[in-house]
Design a protein around this nucleic acid. Structure first.
Length: 741
DNA sequence: TCTGACTGCCC
DNA sequence: ATTCTGC
DNA sequence: GCAGAATGGGCAGTCAGA
């Protein structure tokens, strides 16, 4: 707030105020310890936090070591607990009804041992949301995966044993989901909505809240803080997990006139009924950033711990238990990536009280998206050769388009899913047609799932078009006759065929199945260009050809052997991706001048989180923006560079020779003195509606040029600001790139 | 009726 | 998308 | 090496308000 105020005051005072502001900033930053103290522990339950708090707030190395031992000790205790528990249930494991009863006995023992919360409830009451919020609070304070899994396991176990119907909504809230991704339910509420709701719930103006948000760096912390200062006239009904989840679904289903206000009202209602701690996590769930160091992988590991099949564990050692849990985790991982629907999986888990038999109920099914296999970046030949020594590998063109998983259902329907399991079928009626055409010669096909990349394609010239053109296609309920940008499907894998999963087949076998099942149609449905290699000989040439053809680079995969199966949802080493800009020697690298910065959020609160970068236009003698930059720097660099700029290199106003769009998403929080040059790498240059580099020097007069995938490399100490990359050079790079397409 | 803010989703 | 970091 | 959490450009679609 103070820095903002100083803009209105003559320059001598500006310095004074800026310095004061930076001092408070510094003091604040030094207070932030790696393990953040929770701001909102309810006094009533302080005691139950203590054990974990001590572990996470060590005051010396000694206590740190001690803390580690404590955590380990606790983890072992957990194993013993479940062992004992299962001993009890093992004797009657044949009868599921007695199983349930026994589970309850076990549960009651465990209730007392809940290490993070004293909240308790009994049906018909539903699980209090406060119980989950308290777990989140503790999870936020640690980064130890074992401790995180331990806490989540306790949460799930307690819910399963008390109010099992709440497990599903609990898992949804833990993963920021409203339902299966392919069902397409969207909350349609983000930061602005939360701020508005918070404003009407607390009486603070949005402007004040925004200023406070800059300081706090987290909207949940803001919500918690607001609640603390608000007086409550009466005690509102307390929230339940089920209630919060249902409220979100209600919000998601609102549409049309007044729906924005309506959504805000629902959110306001939630925030008013929430304790400050609950408000914190409600706000974060809405934003989709829980920031408690867990995502669905940890949820899976915890569920697997709860439902690990330990019915016959009498006399088993901790190590043996460990491997049972590991196996259960692997099972649940595999099941979820082949049927990413908690509403199908969780009822089975609860019914069976075990991960056993899960695969029989939750199978790969056409019509439900599979987690797509992902690739790891490879920077140089040796990365590839190390991985694939002694065995042959395939290189495929890496097309610059969008991933599409195409399903053919036994009823003849076609479904198309995006990389993130969204249903893209309404977007691609042309692909639905092309598929049927490519299949026409093969009447034995009843069902399949294939993996492919969709690329914008000019059917006149048979030339692939840019990602940007593909991005311009309409998305909702597209009609065949309205399509303006045609596309070609480049298929590269098949995961399912006529009722059979092919995931375990080798890539060699899958490719053969793919090729025998489809007939390519030029410009509509083709196979990716690919070639088999046994060593590096010829790979560089293929890479050049791929770039020449408008591709990003190459995908590299094992053809046969243990690394050649399809691993859904895994970014494993089985697939590598290689792009020119990964390689140190090649690729575009620009020397740019930071002219402003944005306050960081989350773990970057207190330092700058991103910067506004400019090139130099010698014609207009302006610095023109080419990108914001938010990745590539170490934590240490960020804090030192924040200090550097705040210590005398901040401007109260932009220089008159800064050419910057007036879009609020571009205008930085602070302006910089142009005094450094940063080496910045990118994948591509794109036409930009919001950046100003080379504006007016292109065929599209009102557009500038921007970097695609920009990242920080290093400070160029050896360069002065006038040696920065020029707009002319950027135009040159841009037209070089265009001529390749 | 048009525009800008917001959201979600591609990369 | 890319990158860094704690475990 | 995994999993999580920072951050990028840019588009369509929706809705509120000019």
């Amino acid at each position: 707030m103070r820095t903002r105020l100083c803009f209105l005051i003559p320059s001598v005072h500006k310095i004074f105020y800026v310095q004061r502001a930076s001092l408070t900033m510094k003091r604040k930053a030094s207070n932030i310890s790696p393990r953040k103290q929770p701001s909102t522990i309810p006094k009533s339950s302080i005691g139950s936090y203590l054990s974990i708090l001590q572990k996470e707030e060590p005051s010396s190395l000694d206590t740190e070591r001690q803390a580690k031992e404590n955590v380990d000790q606790n983890t072992n205790d957990m194993r013993l607990e479940s062992q004992q528990g299962s001993e009890t249930s093992s004797s009657t494991s044949e009868h599921s009804s007695s199983l349930v009863e026994n589970a309850k006995v076990v549960c009651e023992e465990k209730l007392d041992e809940c290490t993070f919360s004293s909240v308790s409830w009994q049906p018909p009451s539903r699980t209090p949301f406060r119980f989950l919020a308290e777990a989140f609070e503790v999870m936020e304070m640690t980064t130890s995966r074992l401790a995180l899994i331990k806490i989540l396991t306790q949460v799930f176990r307690k819910i399963v044993n008390t109010t099992p119907d709440d497990l599903l909504p609990c898992v949804y809230l833990c993963t920021n989901m409203l339902g299966p991704a392919h069902e397409g339910l969207e909350l349609k509420a983000g930061e602005a909505t939360v701020l508005n709701a918070l404003s009407s719930a607390t009486g603070n103006s949005v402007k004040v809240l925004k200023e406070r948000l800059i300081k706090l760096g987290d909207i949940g912390d803001l919500a918690a803080e607001c609640r603390t200062t608000q007086q409550t006239m009466f005690k509102p009904p307390s929230l339940t997990i089920q209630g919060v989840y249902q409220e979100f679904r209600t919000m998601a289903n609102l549409a049309g006139k007044m729906s924005t206000k309506e959504r805000e009202k629902h959110l306001q209602k939630l925030l008013v009924s929430a304790t400050s701690q609950e408000a914190k996590y409600i706000a974060r769930i809405v934003l989709g950033k829980l920031r408690i160091h867990i995502a669905y992988k940890t949820v899976i590991a915890s569920l697997a711990t709860v439902f690990a099949p330990c019915s016959k564990t009498v006399g088993k050692t901790a190590d043996e238990m460990d491997s049972i849990v590991k196996e259960a985790t692997a099972t649940l991982n595999a099941v979820y990536s082949q049927l990413p629907m908690w509403d199908r999986i969780i009822p089975v888990l609860i019914q069976n009280k075990s991960t056993q038999g899960l695969e029989d109920h939750c199978r790969l099914t056409p019509g439900v998206p599979v987690g797509p296999m992902l690739a790891k970046p490879a920077k140089e030949a040796s990365d590839v050769l190390e991985r694939f020594q002694e065995c042959s590998f395939v290189c495929e063109y890496k097309y610059d388009g969008m991933r599409a998983q195409i399903h053919y259902l036994p009823d003849g329907n076609v479904k198309i899913f995006s990389r993130n399991a969204e249903d893209d079928t309404p977007k691609y009626p042309d692909i639905v047609e092309n598929i049927k055409f490519a299949l026409s010669k093969n009447k034995a096909v009843r069902s399949f799932i294939i993996d492919s990349e969709v690329v914008a394609y000019d059917p006149e010239t048979n030339v692939m078009k840019s990602f940007q053109e593909l991005q311009g296609r309409a998305r909702k309920e597209v009609k065949l006759e309205d399509i303006k940008v045609s596309v070609c499907v480049f298929a590269f894998d098949i995961l399912f065929f006529n009722g059979e999963s092919l995931l375990k087949w080798s890539l060699k076998e899958r490719r053969e199945k793919l090729i025998e099942t489809f007939s390519p149609v030029q410009g509509k449905f083709q196979f990716t260009t690919s070639k088999v290699f046994t060593d590096w000989e010829g790979v560089d040439e293929m890479m050049d050809e791929a770039i020449q053809a408008g591709c990003e680079g190459l995908m590299i995969k094992a053809l046969t052997g243990e690394y050649s199966s399809y691993e859904p949802s895994n970014r494993s080493q089985n697939w590598l991706k290689m792009k020119k800009d990964y390689m140190n020697s090649i690729g575009d690298s620009l020397d740019l001048v930071p002219i402003g910065a944005y306050y960081g959020r989350g773990k970057r609160s207190g330092v700058f989180g991103a910067f506004l970068l400019a090139c130099y236009n010698s014609e207009t003698e302006e610095f023109q923006t080419v990108c914001k930059l938010g990745t590539g720097f170490s934590d240490e660099f960020l804090s030192s560079i924040t200090k550097f700029y705040k210590d005398g290199h901040i401007l109260a106003e932009p220089k008159p020779y800064y050419g910057v769009s007036d879009s609020p998403t571009i205008i930085p929080d602070v302006w910089f003195d142009p005094c450094q040059v940063w080496e910045t790498r990118c994948a591509d240059l794109t036409l930009s509606p919001s950046h100003t580099a080379a504006k007016g020097m292109l065929s599209e007069e009102d557009k500038g040029i921007a970097l695609r995938f920009p990242r920080f490399i290093r400070i160029r100490e050896d360069k002065s600001v006038d040696d920065a990359t020029t707009a002319e050079q950027i135009v040159e790079l841009y037209s070089n790139q265009k001529s390749k397409m």
